[in-house]
Design a protein around this nucleic acid. Structure first.
Lengths: 236, 236
DNA sequence: CGCAGACTTGAATCTCCTCAAGCTTGGTGG
DNA sequence: CCACCAAGCTTGAGGAGATTCAAGTCTGCG
């Protein structure tokens, strides 16, 4: 759906943190060329190497960012509402470095990159929001890098489960948000190895029945995983 | 040295891309609380977890960014002139995620983080420069992530050598910019494994004599390494 | 010359990957 | 209602790659 004038047409968009402080007129300019669209699961949204014509914002659902090289590919991140992706490519007017596909039914806003760059220069509140979002993305990547280089695959899985538990409310039982093949790729291992890793975590009180995970002994798992705010805390 | 008024005191700073388009008055405000300092090699500049009081800019020399967890540590990046580091922490007023130490004798500018944040809101040219630098940092991290997750250690070394060759002017022979122990950590392997990797690259015409590397058969090495602009090109 | 630090080599071990087969689950059609 | 199928996951065996520990070599500097 093409976005029109009245604010009431897209209240969910106007209230996003990235737009909330910006001038109404600038917001309208941004929206004039923008779309909000619903996508089914497993749809390719962008392909690495393509020019970055649109800034994407995930309003609902979730998106997988992945990359390929020499016949291999790997999941690099999951984008959940409400967050942008390929913001850096938009700002630099450079090609995408990652491909993106929907993981589930998702609602996504598409904003022309050239408009984002133009309004950035005119609206300092928008500029501030952009730079905050970009800083957050950067820090997430640094954390992912530390996770990958400093931990074994078993430690990565243990800490992933603790983070996912926190995200889902903190109960001992929760569901994995996607299949184990993708989780394996995200954690930098093969599906077979992930399977064995789950088995190894049973020694620390972790039970996996299908996608349902139960952490039977929180202290025991945390003692093994040694989560650190400088790697695992999404808020800082 | 504390930076004073006259522009002639620090022409090297004023002409940095990040400052070059900004208003003179704002530049002066920024410089009022800033320092430029020379450090010897192997000096700890910042420690992960500390509050981000100063934005750092490497004017000459080079700086190692690294991180620790559970008794292990790993090099995550090298900062060369002219570039900032810990920009994201400065913007978000959040703790450093990485530690930093000088690799060689280095000249570094220290700018109070709160001033950076304040001037960002007042000077849109400065804001644009900041956001460009931040985008570049983000994209570098994405490339590093792809390098790490999609390539074997031998492929990472081969591509590293090709990049380093390009950076040093393109000649078949060039020097590694630091010791092999740190290179191993940067590439995500042990020093022993790096040693063996160099030996394996001899099959593709690579000779290593101390820190001096010679690529005897460019085409052969590139054929093995398969460098990709979306991972190895620093400019995009 | 001799020492200290950096790098290399070797052997044993461990982790992770590949390939192949088996199992489980959910959906479909008889 | 159940047999069947396909997809996703698990298990096992074997092998490739990385790590560790220990010893040896090289190099620059005093």
């Amino acid at each position: 759906m093409r976005l029109g004038m009245p604010e009431t047409d897209f209240p969910g968009v106007r209230n996003l943190e990235i737009f909330s402080d910006m001038d109404e007129e600038n917001f309208q300019s941004l929206m004039r060329g923008s779309y909000v669209q619903n996508f089914p699961p497993q749809i390719d949204l962008i392909t690495e190497g393509d020019p970055s014509d649109f800034l994407h914002i995930v309003l609902s659902g979730s998106v997988d960012l992945f990359a390929s090289w020499s016949g291999r590919d790997s999941s690099l991140a999951t984008v959940r509402p409400v967050a942008t992706f390929i913001l850096a490519a938009t700002i630099k007017d450079a090609p995408y470095l990652m491909s993106a596909r929907t993981l589930e039914k998702s609602r996504i806003a598409l904003i022309p990159s050239q408009d984002v760059r133009a309004i950035f220069d005119r609206d300092s509140n928008f500029a501030r929001a952009i730079v905050t979002e970009l800083s957050q993305s950067y820090r997430r990547k640094v954390k992912a890098m530390k996770d990958l280089k400093l931990r074994t695959s078993l430690e990565r899985l243990a800490n992933y489960l603790l983070r996912e538990q926190g995200r889902s409310g903190g109960d001992p039982s929760f569901d994995l948000p996607f299949g184990k093949a993708r989780l394996a790729s995200l954690l930098g291992m093969t599906p077979e190895n992930l399977s064995r890793a789950f088995k190894n975590l049973q020694a620390y009180g972790v039970t996996a029945a299908g996608n349902r995970i139960t952490i039977n002994d929180q202290a025991d798992l945390e003692d093994f995983a040694r989560p650190s705010p400088l790697i695992d805390d999404d808020r800082i």
